[in-house]
């Protein structure tokens, strides 16, 4: 009994230490929003094209018949980080041949059309999610957010925020490569 009492402070220190080790880990993001959408088929949706541009709309069916992993990027013209990310996505498409689909989130079609005319349009398809419903179906917590959908239409990876930093780009590339490997 006495031995147990003596060991008690050490035990408490151990538990607290473990908690701090977890809590103070610089790689842990306390603001990360978990999603129940990873490793699941893409949600059912069918979005019309953005009015005023030629790029066709986007539906769940389109993502099921790609035959290879693709990126699905949620963006909006009012989203400043999206502007920064746009150059990276364009490079992905033009230099690396990555296929890119877009969900234009709660954006006025005129604004989106202007934005794409201004910066260029790397997207193969763009669905216009005017009221943000499909955004909730994809369980996004903000824009931009980017998903990797594999050849079978399963969402295998999610990146929250703009893909700008080299680490972020590497992470997305790695996810695409991982999705390419046959199951």
């Amino acid at each position: 009994m006495k031995r147990m009492v003596v060991a008690l402070p050490a035990l408490v220190a151990l538990i607290l230490g473990g908690f701090f080790l977890w809590g103070l880990n610089p790689d842990r993001d306390p603001n990360a929003v978990p999603t129940a959408r990873i490793a699941k088929p893409v949600p059912e949706f069918d979005l019309p094209a953005v009015a005023g541009i030629e790029t066709p709309g986007l539906s769940a069916d389109n993502l099921r018949e790609t035959g290879e992993p693709v990126l699905v990027n949620v963006f909006a013209s009012w989203c400043v980080p999206c502007r920064a990310e746009h150059a990276v996505l364009t490079r992905f498409v033009e230099q690396d041949g990555i296929r890119l689909m877009g969900i234009n989130y709660q954006d006025k079609p005129e604004d989106a059309a202007d934005w794409l005319a201004d910066l260029g349009n790397p997207y193969e398809r763009i669905g216009s999610d005017l009221d943000g419903r499909v955004g909730v179906d994809w369980a996004i917590s903000g824009v931009p957010e980017t998903f990797v959908v594999d050849a079978n239409g399963v969402v295998v990876f999610r990146y929250v925020g703009p893909i700008i930093a080299p680490e972020a780009q590497a992470e997305v590339r790695a996810a695409l490569d991982a999705a390419k490997e046959p199951l």
Binding site: V33, D131, G132, G135, V136, S141
Partner: peptide, 23 residues
């Protein structure tokens, strides 16, 4: 609210929270 984490969607001003309330 998935934007402002410790707030419920009833009192949140975030766009996503509004969409969630409507849904």
């Amino acid at each position: 609210c998935v934007v402002c984490l410790n707030q419920d969607i009833d009192s949140s001003n975030a766009g996503v929270a509004r969409t969630m309330r409507i849904l």
